[in-house]
Nucleic acid binder design. Structure first.
Lengths: 220, 220
DNA sequence: GTTCTATTCAATAAATCTATTGAATAGTTG
DNA sequence: CAACTATTCAATAGATTTATTGAATAGAAC
């Protein structure tokens, strides 16, 4: 095979893989699946698209070997094929945060509106966790907490926060985290906590980001 | 702004960035620019496309903040905006090598045909370089070698290899490297060396991959 | 200020991608 | 085996992307 033909072929193959990621719905799906495997129905519900549409996008991801499936009784559960896929998305995300002004502004504005402007990152969290004064809250649904969480975190799904809040001490500092920088559970939690007079900030990243950094992860 | 509206907007912005990468020509351009900045004309020549077409693709990359420009006299030189962009491409590439059978096969076949099947990776290279018996050859054009190379490498652009080869000792082991895993200069060099009875292998990765690993890089 | 040259723009036709709908399928449960 | 249900398929119309042309532009050089 001639050099140019080879190059065209190989870059075309890579571009097909990139194309599979190059869609807002599919990025959202990858972000979700980075969390844990999910059925078509669950994905459709969380991303607010039709089941047929979600299925179609999942087919695209599957055809490009970014996700694979496991049958479980009546359901088919989709997974990312491995951590590398999430890492690629995570790198893309970083480039976006760093370079695309619109993305930055959109996120800042959203957080400002929620009164959740201050965020700390994973490095800062590691330092702070050494202090007894910091309490870490995992705002995701229970199942996600159970399938893996940051060691030392308390499971406080958003719906339970309002009752849980009564038990919290005012003299502590709270850090809330959820699925990732684009997940808004933690922002909502921080908003509620601040309103009630607690000192609270969100963690910029989420559990999958913690995990791909190779930091220890607890599972129940 | 409502949660769903926020999510749609933010994932759309990210997907626009990914779309900018989702084209074979543009991936090749990113791969090239990871090497060093280049003018439109240079890019058009190396990728064998028309200048108008190359320019159009560069506009797409520029609009997405993946590349920027610097005027130099009569020419405009395009650069990647930062290392993160190349790292993202590098991660994508890894996923492709690992998960997409067609990509693997294509590359293996091409190397087989060039008699350059055995490749070592950067980790192995670091170990081997401790031995006096291993000689590292940089097969890229002189300018690229000068703008940065792996410490200890000899500059042997492909055109000069045939004359250079007369000076080489048969009892050494040669490692050839070039721009990256999809660059074929090193394969050609290995083929020539093997044909003449030298022990030679290529380095799987290229100089930019060495650099983003944070390993030391010499420049003249 | 005119000429020159690298680069960009504009227009177009072909190809590809997307959401929606409703029907089809495959595997499970009773 | 029949009924059921999660998922996929197929068809379509509208939107987006792409390569190719040849013309336009903007800055450098003289």
């Amino acid at each position: 095979m001639e050099r140019r033909v080879f190059k065209n072929k190989v870059y075309t193959l890579f571009s097909q893989m990139v194309k599979a990621m190059a869609n807002p719905h599919r990025l959202e799906i990858i972000d979700l699946l980075g969390q844990s495997g999910r059925t078509v129905e669950e994905i459709a519900k969380e991303t607010e698209m039709s089941v047929a549409n979600a299925s179609q996008h999942l087919q695209v991801l599957k055809a490009s070997n970014l996700v694979d499936i496991a049958r479980e009784g009546n359901y088919i559960r989709y997974h990312l094929v491995n951590d590398k896929v999430f890492e690629t998305w995570s790198d893309l995300r970083d480039v976006g945060f760093e370079r695309v002004a619109e993305i930055n502004k959109l996120i800042q504005d959203y957080r400002a509106q929620k009164n959740s402007l201050e965020a700390i990152n994973i490095e800062e969290l590691v330092t702070r966790m050494k202090s007894k004064n910091t309490i870490l809250l995992d705002i995701r649904p229970t199942e996600e907490f159970n399938s893996g969480h940051i060691p030392g975190a308390l499971s406080v799904p958003l719906e339970t926060l309002k009752t849980f809040i009564k038990t919290l001490a005012k003299n502590k500092e709270y850090i809330a985290y959820c699925r990732g920088p684009l997940c808004v559970f933690a922002d909502d939690a921080v908003a509620i906590l601040n309103r009630k007079g607690f000192k609270a900030k969100r963690l910029e990243e989420g559990f999958p980001d913690w995990k791909i950094k190779g930091l220890p992860a607890h599972a129940n």
